[in-house]
Computed example of a mutant assay.
Amino acid sequence: MNIYVSNLSYAVNDSDLRDLFGEYGEISSAKVIMDRESGRSRGFGFVEMPSDTEGQKAIDELNQVEYDGKVINVNVAKPRTDRPRNNNYNRGGYRSERKY
């Protein structure tokens, strides 16, 4: 089961997530998403648990619980939808052939 965790403190790291969810069962992976530019946490992450039963128990017991000073949201992760790439095409100018 893939689990989405949001409203995380910026101090929370992968190991913290693994420890938090490890109380409910086996963890396949735990990842806090980091900003590419600043290297700082984006305040959310994903946990993967092989057992749906253990994953659901973790969701039920951790959703809306205070963790590291913030009330976290814990839900089943929705599949990622493909978004069209922007590629900065025709950004802000009135002439699309303009070179940047």
Rank of each mutant, 00 (worst) to 15 (best):
R42V: 04
L8C: 02
G55H: 04
V47S: 15
R42T: 09
D68L: 11
F44E: 01
N75D: 12
S6W: 00
N2F: 08
V47N: 12
R85Q: 14
K70G: 01
F44P: 01
G92A: 00
D16H: 05
L8I: 02
D52W: 10
F44V: 01
G43A: 03
I59Q: 03
A58P: 14
L8N: 05
Y94P: 11
E97D: 14
Y100K: 12
R80M: 08
N75W: 00
V32D: 05
Y100P: 04
E48A: 05
L17Y: 06
N13T: 05
D14A: 10
V76G: 06
Y89I: 14
I27K: 02
R36M: 14
M1W: 07
M49A: 14
N13S: 13
V47C: 11
I33C: 05
M49S: 09
G45R: 01
Y94C: 06
K57R: 14
V12L: 04
G93C: 09
A30I: 05
R83N: 03
D35T: 13
Q56F: 10
A11Y: 10
R42H: 02
M49T: 10
G43L: 01
V12D: 00
Y67N: 05
Y10L: 13
L62Q: 12
I33D: 10
R42C: 06
K57P: 02
Y100W: 14
N63G: 09
V71R: 12
E61Q: 09
L62G: 04
S29I: 07
I33L: 08
R80P: 04
V32N: 05
G39W: 03
N73R: 07
Y100H: 10
N90V: 02
S29M: 02
N86P: 00
S29C: 08
D60E: 14
K99E: 11
R85T: 04
G45K: 00
N13H: 11
E26L: 07
I72M: 04
N88Q: 05
G55N: 13
E66A: 12
N88A: 12
E26M: 11
N13L: 13
N7F: 01
S6N: 03
F46Y: 07
Y24F: 06
Y24M: 01
M49Q: 03
I72F: 00
S38P: 14
R40M: 03
